[in-house]
Design a protein around this nucleic acid. Sequence first.
DNA 1: TCAATCACG
DNA 2: ACGTACGTGATTGAC
Length: 627
Amino acid sequence: MEFNNLLKQIIPSDEAQALPETPSRDKPAVYTTISSLSELKKLLKRLSSKKEVAVDTETTSLDPLRARLVGVSLSDAATTGYYVPLGHTGEGEVNLPFEEAMRELKGFLEDRTVQKIGQNIKYDLEVLHHYNVEIEPVGFDTMLASYVLNPSQRQHSLDFLALKHFDHRMQPIKDLIGTGRKQTTFDTVPVNKATAYAAEDADFTFRLRGKLAPLIHDLGLHDLYYHLELPLIKVLAAMEEAGIRVDAHYLAGLSETMTGKLETVMGEIYEIAGGEFNINSTRQLAHVLFEKLSLPTKGKTAKKTGYATDVRVLQELAGLHPFPQLVLEYRQLSKLKSTYIDAIPKLINPETGRVHTSFNQTVTATGRLSSTDPNLQNIPVRTEEGRQIRKAFVPRDDDHVLLVADYSQVELRILAHYSEDPGLIDAFRKGEDIHTRTASEVYGVKPDEVIPEMRRAAKTANFAVIYGVTAYGLSQQSALNLDEAREFIDTYFERYPAIRTYMDSTMQFARDNGYVTTLFNRRRYIPEINDSNHNVRQFAERTAINTPIQGTAADMIKVAMIRIHEKMAGMRSKMVLQVHDELVFDTHKSELEKVRKIVRVAMEKAVKLKVPVVVDLGVGENWLDAK
DNA sequence: TCAATCACG
DNA sequence: ACGTACGTGATTGAC
């Protein structure tokens, strides 16, 4: 039921009259079940003369690659919607004949004269692709539009957007399929109820386009939206469909090894603790560390609910007692086992034998992608034990190899571009090792006199600048103490003076406008930049510094991905993963040189910066060896 | 559902 | 004198 009507029932009618009008109040929505093939043909014939039509699919699963199609809904005007039942399984339910109906729908969905509008249309693309149906052209995605308008907004669901933009409460899906253990699938929903639900989805998707498209235009987001984010949808859909092969047999072996190691470490831990306890429980662990063993505490947890036992604390305590080191080992091993070694094989799709992550395009505040189910953007690489897990990611068969391409120092190059700092630009133009150059500048020694310790400090400082440097933060991350960190930063800005100017002017822009932008005009609002609370304001300032840099890097790789996808059309090789500054390709051996060239050029020429953009390429029989 | 922890760029 | 790195997602325990 519509929200204003709900209110009308509980407040006096004269007050209800004062509520703002919405179209649905004036004109009740008409949602129609399409109950025969001839009706479908008639409808699609009428819709084929429209400029744009909203499309939505109803299925049996949130996972588009496992989902079976249950119905399709369409809308070509506010307050109207149509539902085409295809796979309802309830007793006495009437579906359209599947093959014939799909043939008609395919003709319409692939009719290039009609722009298709969707909400999270990547999902519908993947579902329909399973039935050999494309959606083209994709003219608008309401979820993606909402994200581009405000990437900090937590929700872009249709329910949320209908409430926000139309003050309308959508019918909850829970009302149809239930929740928890009693949850059913959409195919068991009676057709009449399905129509009310599904047609409403298409209706409000259509209406939202009318609201959001002008906003996209008004905020100068046209190019970002129509030439970057919207075309990326199909690229991501193809990557998700392709998936990556995982060697489950190898991981099973790793799991056995890990179990053995864990048992050994656990035994040693219980020995010292004088009895068994749950090492995973920070409360129980803190009890053992700080009461039984009387080790000194190193501060509270973030929310101050207890004493911290994180890696930094345990590393410090490791100098005093053998126990903390064992806990560190336990933590590392159990993390790898539960999060990766045992979890990933469960997500192998039995049909394809591969893992198909979901790349989310509407999550991050900066414009980056995120990856879930499983997250393939945080596969271990930093420790030796972790690297063994990377080896499990392999080419699809013996005719393929993995090709990895990653941007070299892309965020620092973007900083050089934005700040136009002469020293930073000079270093990149000469192809110098940027961290050695920084160490040489700050410590005042020749590059060949830079010792590893100096380079390490310089490297940390270079990252710190991108994050919005503070002396305290640098001292926590490096071997420098607070005073040394202060001095290091002072000297750093003496050597790279334009960086400080750039940081100041970025913060000033944020204070004046309430937002910052990337090179592609992606916008992130930072209202806290003028907050009266010092901490809140400083956090906002670091965000203001970091977002244009991280966000521009995200823009760049998205441009490259679209170009690469176009250039690789019809080839056997597939782009399969993106990890922020890295792309992974499952490459047919016969196409290796061609793919290499396409990828290098697309990535390096995605954006013209004032410094060279450099890409490192590697090839191997698994993800680790290819890097 | 939140907090703590830790995996990645 | 403030209290601090930027951006994510998954697992586990505790309530």
